[in-house]
């Protein structure tokens, strides 16, 4: 039974979190936006100004190339992850509860892994000395071990590795709440398991799939280290470039402008995915 807040102490309860989030999240955000209009000073860092030259740099072909690559890569990663994770999560939610818990613990552990560690793990697995090619050599499939990283395939593999557990956990609520009688009805009517999955489960969760695709896309767009650790400089994404400009090139205004741009892209996509999610809950 909720009531309207009245006393001072009621407001004090929300005052602290609201204050902390304002000071340490909203204000930093505002400063970052302001900084995106600042002017870079050669030799020093930057000085306050109101110029659009940081945004004007987006109009170059170099930037367009990075943006196109980042978006394409994130989209590809999202599609592969959802294609793998959707059937996986469906099977997972049909398992005994104990088995589900074991998988969930494992998935959470992988998901919490630092991007540094994922990058290190895959670069080891794809390396010449300790990598998977040694196994292929000993099986007689390959002549001599070779390094598979840095390459586009390595970046893709690392990013799918990172997004897969996330995708499963985003899909998990919707799939575990799916009414089992839907599938039972299809089975009773003579449909095989694979057919009832494709013809009943997938259409029933169409909106969840779309909103998950968008969520995973945004997640992959935020990936900041794997393209750097597993790829060549031509595989760098917007997130890598932001870090590079901010830390190594000391060009905060340009980094901030790119970050503002990334926020706008991400936020509009998240808004679309929320709209899709709402529709399904309503219908």
């Amino acid at each position: 039974m909720k009531i309207k807040p009245g006393k001072f102490s009621d407001y004090a309860a929300i005052g602290f979190p609201a204050g902390m989030l304002t000071v340490f999240f909203v204000i930093p955000f505002g400063i970052m936006i302001a900084m995106s209009f600042f002017q870079r000073v050669q030799g020093a860092f930057y000085e306050p100004a109101f110029v659009f030259e940081n945004y004007a740099r987006f109009l170059s072909t170099f930037f367009a190339g990075i943006l196109g690559f980042s978006v394409g890569l994130a989209a590809l990663v999202a599609v592969v992850s959802v294609l793998l994770a959707f059937p996986f999560t469906y099977i997972l939610t049909r398992m005994a509860r104990q088995t589900q818990v074991v998988w969930l613990v494992f998935l959470l552990s992988v998901l919490s892994l630092s991007e540094v560690l994922i990058g290190f793990g895959w670069s080891t697995l794809l390396s010449r000395t300790a990598g998977i090619t040694n196994l292929l050599v000993s099986l007689g499939i390959m002549d001599k071990p070779m390094s598979l990283s840095p390459s586009f395939g390595a970046v893709m593999t690392g990013m799918v590795y990172q997004t897969f557990p996330y995708t499963v956990l985003v899909l998990y609520p919707a799939l575990s709440r799916l009414d089992p009688s839907l599938v039972e009805a299809a089975r009773t009517l003579g449909s095989g398991p694979a057919r009832s999955f494709l013809n009943v489960v997938v259409p029933a969760l169409r909106n969840s799939i779309v909103s998950t695709l968008i969520m995973v896309f945004v997640f992959a767009l935020g990936c900041y280290l794997l393209p750097q650790l597993l790829g060549k400089p031509s595989h760098w994404t917007l997130s890598v470039l932001i870090t590079d400009q901010a830390i190594y090139q000391s060009n905060m205004p340009f980094a901030a402008a790119m970050a503002v741009f990334l926020v706008l892209v991400s936020l509009s996509l998240v808004a679309i995915s929320l709209l899709y999610g709402k529709k399904e809950n309503a219908g």
């Binding site: 929300i14 979190p17 609201a18 989030l21 304002t22 340490f24 999240f25 909203v26 204000i27 930093p28 955000f29 400063i31 970052m32 900084m35 945004v218 767009l221 935020g222 900041y224 997130s239 932001i242 870090t243 901010a246 905060m252 980094a255 901030a256 970050a259 990334l262 926020v263 991400s266 936020l267 998240v270």
Partner: peptide, 25 residues
């Protein structure tokens, strides 16, 4: 306030990180 509490996790981490860098400097 609730949305503010959920936002850091939904946005790409680089953005939050850069926000903190500009804030602390």
């Amino acid at each position: 306030v609730q949305v503010l509490g959920l936002a850091p996790f939904i946005l790409p981490p680089v953005i939050t990180a850069l926000g903190f860098l500009s804030f602390w400097t």
